[in-house]
Design a protein around this nucleic acid. Structure first.
Lengths: 237, 237
DNA sequence: CGTACGTTTGAAGGAGCTCAAACGCGGTGG
DNA sequence: CCACCGCGTTTGAGCTCCTTCAAACGTACG
């Protein structure tokens, strides 16, 4: 449901960049491990709206986001869609349950991802305990992130959830632009992620702006006017 | 940071029962792996309200619940408490982030848990890729469970969340009593888990009873009157 | 320049939250 | 053995905030 061409990732992605380091506390692979994994991988570019895999499809590949932003979502019986998580450069995703993918992963921006066939990867993981330990660490961090998200969702107020979402963005996007945050996803994506309606997200953003916390620069860029106020609101759980 | 004088570490661990198999789709260790892990573990009994470890404490042990039910929670700045997850027999918990526990784990019922020092365990995991793969599988399942919980929390209606919680209980408690469900945790624990107030949980239970879905047998036991209606309500997301 | 889609804004309604009080069971002490 | 007390649970009334239904706005694209 989007097809916006925000110049988040202007270039195409032909030459293979290295798997990027994560911005913050995220553990990474060392050079040797990265190299061994890359040997198994194919770097595939994707365009906005591209679907990397679908819910319930038999698993075939594990992915590591190299560039761009994706969303991982699930369609509910009611027809509603819930965004389970966003994926940023460096994120690993595609671990299945009972041989089938659990969520659908779709590109939000243009970008590229390393696609790794599960067979050789799983074999390598079983054999290389050190490498697997890195993966285990990452999945554990994903687990923490999911638990954090539960806390976000337990908040009543829309602006409180949005404040925590903005800090989530700050943690996952390039460090340089800490006061001008690109918001690659649509309002409905944010709403589906925060368990709100699109309208509530819009109103919440407006409220944050009124309160001198943010200054929207168009719908896809937000300037943080008062990081202090933002932190306070986000921490007021 | 630690008080409670519950006999968590009574030195002597009674004869060790086997790590119980999980009720359903949860992956388990094979006999050999279980045996190797048990060799590192101490079985410690716990009484209700006993705290196994606290949020932010430096990690020291990984635990596997052998018997009983525990809750894993986090205290928020506001003083509110959010139950992140409940732990049932067979569950593994205590994986830390940056060397510190993320949640506090406290016993809800009497029971016992295997306590495994992280040093030798991590060493073993790095060396035994197969064993670690089992752990990785489990953490992945925990991740799925946490994502499921996000979907629960995204529902606005109290009775809908409660219906999903009841199915959660059905999945984790002994299979035999599928129509008479023991509810070991308090209403406030349930509320803190579902992101509701204690009153809303109470009202929601009453509503489910009015609608002929459940029949409370005291606050801690629920009879399922209509599994079909329960499933329908739980699936109506 | 017109259309389409995402976003913003408006008004009414509902569901859960807060504040409060009553109920019921279990434990303690007389 | 019974009364008292404590705590968890249930029930009640008003209020806030998000949702729903609707319409207007603005920018990108054909």
């Amino acid at each position: 449901m989007s097809a916006t061409k925000v110049p988040l990732t202007p270039g195409s992605a032909p030459p293979a960049p290295a798997i990027p380091e994560r911005p913050a506390s995220k553990g990474g692979l060392n050079a040797k491990q990265r190299q061994e994994v890359i040997a198994l991988a194919t770097l595939v570019p994707f365009r906005p709206r591209a679907i990397l895999y679908r819910e319930n499809a038999p698993e075939g590949f594990i992915f590591v986001c190299a560039d761009g932003v994706l969303k991982s979502y699930r369609d509910l019986p009611s027809g509603r869609r819930r965004v389970v998580t966003f994926r940023y450069p460096g994120d690993l995703f595609g671990l299945a349950e009972a041989g089938r993918y659990v969520n659908t992963v779709q590109a939000v921006t243009p970008g590229s991802a390393y696609r790794i066939p599960i067979e050789p990867l799983y074999a390598k993981l079983r054999q290389d305990g050190e490498l697997q330990f890195q993966v285990l660490t990452r999945v554990t961090q994903d687990l923490r992130e999911a638990q954090r998200q539960s806390i976000v969702l337990s908040r009543r107020s829309a602006d409180g959830r949005i404040a925590m979402f903005l800090k989530h963005l700050q943690g996952h996007l390039p460090v340089q632009s800490i006061d001008l945050i690109p918001v690659p996803m649509s309002r409905s994506d944010i709403a589906a992620f925060l368990g709100l309606t699109l309208e509530s997200v819009s109103r919440g953003m407006a409220k944050l702006a009124r309160n001198g916390i943010i200054a929207p620069q168009g719908p896809r860029y937000l300037q943080i006017v008062s990081q202090k106020k933002l932190d306070a609101l986000a921490a007021d759980v």
